[in-house]
């Protein structure tokens, strides 16, 4: 049958050839689909491996003493209290300083500088800073705040983190303010509100969830940052909450402990790693849930 058709109409109309071609195309399709599903599995497996390792090695060392004792010399059952408190303080400083600046920059980009050259430049630079190597921000703060004053300090660490917060908050604030319908602004203006009041009293509340998401993501990012703290707050194995002295933090303590030769320090490093990862992932998930109804 197929031979007859082939003789009459040539190979392009030959069902056997067409069948082969179609089968090859479908095989290719199945192969690529399989590979892509495999790629996704690889990604998920990596996440699972990391979380599994942390739970496996970190959970065993989780005692109350981790939260009630400061770091101590190897062999004397210390905890991570000073590291946890130091991380909280520096993250708080970073968020408290970076958030208002970021919101103002985002407001400027969305409400005042749309379409202007200066606005484009600011947006461009902010986006580049968003992905800039964080260790360089540490070097920068060292040059500006640590080296001139001759001392590593908690405040320098907090400010280094603030530099990281700003572009994250800028991005979400601008995006969220742009989503606000023009009618809402017009309604405010029609009531006689000046522009700043329409922004502060109408736009900010309307964009509240989105901006909060940005802040949460920023907190999650800086809570795990190590590199910018190495040359600014340095880390401190003694209890200290003085802002003008070297301050401990979870990531830096993990860095110091993980590379050490003492078994109990490595164990504490795993506990710290577990705590910080769970905290950061929880913040991320909360941020996503917060944003969900808006999209």
């Amino acid at each position: 049958m197929s031979g007859v058709v082939s003789a009459m109409t040539g190979p392009r109309r030959d069902p056997a050839v067409a069948d082969r071609l179609s089968r090859r195309r479908r095989r290719m399709n199945r192969l690529v689909k399989g590979l892509c599903t495999g790629a996704t599995l690889v990604g998920l497996v990596f996440l699972g491996l990391i979380l599994g390792t942390l739970l496996w090695l970190g959970f065993g060392g989780l005692h109350w003493s981790v939260f009630t004792e400061a770091t101590k010399p190897p062999g004397s059952h210390g905890g991570l209290l000073n590291a946890i408190v130091g991380s909280l303080i520096q993250t708080l400083i970073g968020t408290a300083v970076g958030t208002p600046v970021g919101i103002m920059v985002g407001t400027y980009l969305s409400e005042y500088a749309a379409g202007t050259r200066l606005g484009d430049a600011v947006r461009f630079v902010s986006d580049v800073l968003l992905s800039a190597p964080s260790i360089l921000i540490g070097l920068f703060v060292y040059q500006v705040l640590v080296s001139p004053f001759g001392a590593f300090s908690g405040i320098a660490g907090g400010l280094a983190l603030a530099v990281i917060v700003v572009p994250i908050v800028v991005r979400t604030t601008e995006d969220m303010l742009r989503l606000i319908p023009v009618e809402l602004r017009e309604a405010a203006v029609a009531l006689g509100a000046p522009k700043w009041k329409s922004i502060v009293l109408v736009c900010y509340p309307a964009a509240r969830d989105g901006i909060a998401t940005g802040v949460l993501l920023a907190v999650a990012r800086i809570a795990g940052e190590t590199a910018p703290l190495l040359f600014t707050s340095l880390g401190n194995l003694n209890w200290s909450i003085s802002l003008t002295r070297p301050m401990s933090s979870l990531p830096v303590t993990i860095y110091q402990y993980a590379g050490s030769a003492f078994e109990d320090w490595v164990q504490l490093a795993w506990v710290g790693a577990l705590l910080i990862t769970l905290g950061v992932l929880a913040l991320n998930i909360v941020a996503r849930v917060l944003l969900r109804p808006r999209r």
Binding site: G43, F46, L47, L49, I50, T53, L54, A220, R221, A223, G224, E225, T226, A227, P251, I254, Y255, A258, A269, W270, A273, I276, T277, V280, L281, N284, I285
Partner: peptide
């Protein structure tokens, strides 16, 4: 979430 895991954790792991 892979992007949210801190760099130090990747290092230790």
């Amino acid at each position: 979430l892979l992007a949210a895991v801190p760099s130090i954790i990747y290092g230790m792991w």
